[in-house]
């Protein structure tokens, strides 16, 4: 492992730490929010925006940019934190979460720089991503489309329409990342409506699938670097993650899917996440 590579991984981990801290900051400002699914996605978002995606934050409408759709829109605090970190939006926007007339609400709004689609109703992002991937193909453009979906979200049937279509259309320029934190609003996914065997299901639908530890930055980077996993099929990364990752009392608990953030909670969260460099 070269020292350059290790420095890159360390840098991305530091970005993820910034994102997590800013998630808690935004939620603290708003009084509450979805820390669980925002924190589970943070490492992947760091790798996407600071390593993988071909973007120009100073020109957010650049037509050849790679597209990212946050289908699990309730993790918008993490997306906003990432967009601020990347320079799409001013850092001060993070203090406007849920605020009157804010562009930064609970769910992504396409009117905000860097946001590719308004999401929040679950099970929409994959179809939208297919449309983007087809838009690239039809206009002979090289941009890639990446969609992050939640595990509970996969219970929506529209995903399976999309899974069937993307494979049928051979969209190798489309990647789905499943943020598999095993928990949804009211409990554990496996107990509420189990997805398993989720890898086999997507593979049977015609997707090229890899499983990774979504908090191991090297694994995340290696998976993204290996895209597309097949020449004529869409790719799925099943990222095993921990809901609320990084803050002990929020980890692996459906109570912290969406919860209140008091001053005490906020201070405790920041101290556990540690200072970024």
């Amino acid at each position: 492992m070269s020292s350059n590579y290790q420095a890159k991984i360390d840098g991305l981990e530091n970005v993820a730490r910034h994102i997590r801290r800013n998630v808690w900051r935004a939620l603290h400002g708003a009084g509450s929010g979805h820390m669980g699914g925002s924190s589970s996605a943070a490492d992947i978002l760091a790798a996407l925006y600071f390593h993988h995606l071909n973007l120009r934050p100073d020109d957010p409408d650049w037509s050849d940019r790679d597209r990212f759709v946050l289908s699990k829109g309730h993790a918008n605090a993490a997306l906003g934190a990432t967009l601020a970190q990347a320079g799409y939006i001013d850092d001060s926007v993070l203090d406007q979460f849920y605020a009157y007339q804010s562009s930064f609400g609970m769910h992504p709004d396409i009117k905000m720089a860097g946001v590719e689609m308004s999401t929040g109703g679950l099970g929409h992002g994959l179809s939208v991503g297919i449309g983007m991937a087809l838009g690239a193909r039809m206009q002979a453009k090289d941009f890639r489309t990446c969609v992050m979906i939640g595990d509970g979200e996969l219970q929506e049937g529209s995903n399976w329409e999309g899974a069937m279509a993307a494979a049928h259309l051979g969209l190798s320029n489309l990647t789905v990342i499943l943020d598999y934190n095993k928990i949804q609003q009211s409990g554990h996914v496996g107990q509420m409506l189990d997805l398993e065997p989720v890898l086999d299901k997507w593979a049977a639908f015609g997707w090229a699938v890899r499983e990774i530890d979504g908090h191991n930055m090297s694994a995340v980077v290696e998976a993204l670097d290996a895209l597309p996993f097949a020449a004529a099929a869409p790719s799925l990364i099943i990222a095993h993650t921990i809901k609320g990752k990084g803050v002990s009392f929020a980890e692996d608990s459906f109570l912290w899917h969406n919860n209140a953030v008091t001053d005490e909670v906020y201070e405790q969260a920041l101290s556990e996440l540690g200072e970024p460099s």
Binding site: S127, V128, G131, M132, A133, L134, K141
Partner: peptide, 9 residues
Amino acid sequence: GIAAGMATT
């Protein structure tokens, strides 16, 4: 959904 995504491009 495909139509909407396609339109954004």
